[in-house]
Design a protein around this nucleic acid. Structure first.
Lengths: 143, 143
DNA sequence: CCTCATACTTCACGAGAATGAACTATCCAT
DNA sequence: ATGGATAGTTCATTCTCGTGAAGTATGAGG
């Protein structure tokens, strides 16, 4: 019998790696860009704990993202010590193209589910996400 | 509205990272161990293309896995130039514990689906895996 | 046999990236 | 206003990892 959990997990990880490779980013840079794109403008300091590195490493990571054109540094009007990281729109097409493509492919079969099936899938996703987060936290807390 | 695809993707990637961190492995080592555990004893050479590194790097990666007790090197009886990599059972509990825990948590809600719901979920998973693999290949082929 | 190819390893080297200490600029509390 | 905390950066250093060339051992074809 197929192990869907493992297959899906592997497929997602490989997809992530392929994106990073395509964008010319290493794991830390890709992760940082994901957070910036996702969570809007955010101060440099918040990335350090998320990436599991020190503040100085974040500066270097952001430097590379800026140099590659994915991110811009902007001053925070409410606190002039802070630097806000914003996704640079000039490079947005690179990212959007990938995910638009994926979204289109996903829709071709997602459109075929009726309401009941869709509810089951959503329930499965919500619970899987919840369990994964809980297990991740559990793994992290016991060093 | 929640973006389940992104949330699931992130949760899986973070879960993977947490496992690697827990096992004391970097990304390449974790990936190699996954392949060895999954695909049974396999010769060193097959890892190089999978990991995207040269043969010399594989030697170093396997060295670390052996020293950490996750893998053993065994001679290939059919070709004495080859070295077969085998998952070391002494460390298996570390891995099994993590996945047994996850499996138990997953079962608590998976058991609640009826036949029709289960079929929808399986269909969703199969198609998602198929699309992800196709998109990964597409990203890789156009450098 | 003898030659060439293959599987893996060893070694010296170099590139990338993370760290801690020190520095600048700004905010906040008294 | 002034002392201390905070945000971010710079710099020198260190560490990890991957590479390419060379070496050993084994297999395979003429």
């Amino acid at each position: 019998m197929r192990d869907y959990g493992w297959e899906l997990s592997t497929a997602i990880v490989l997809f992530h790696e392929a994106i990073a490779r395509r964008l010319g980013l290493n794991a830390a840079e890709h992760k940082a860009l994901g957070l910036i794109v996702r969570s809007g403008p955010l101060p440099t300091g918040t990335l350090a704990p998320e990436l599991g590195v020190g503040a100085t490493a974040v500066t270097a990571i952001v430097d590379r993202l800026v140099r590659a054109g994915y991110v811009r540094r902007e001053p925070d009007p409410t606190d002039r010590r802070r630097v806000l990281l914003v996704a640079d729109q000039s490079r947005a097409p690179d990212l959007n193209g990938i995910f638009a493509d994926l979204g289109r492919e996903m829709n071709t079969f997602m459109a075929g589910y009726d309401e009941h099936e869709m509810a089951a899938i959503v329930d499965y996703l919500e619970n899987t996400i919840r369990v994964l987060k809980a297990q991740t936290a559990k793994l992290a807390e016991q060093p």
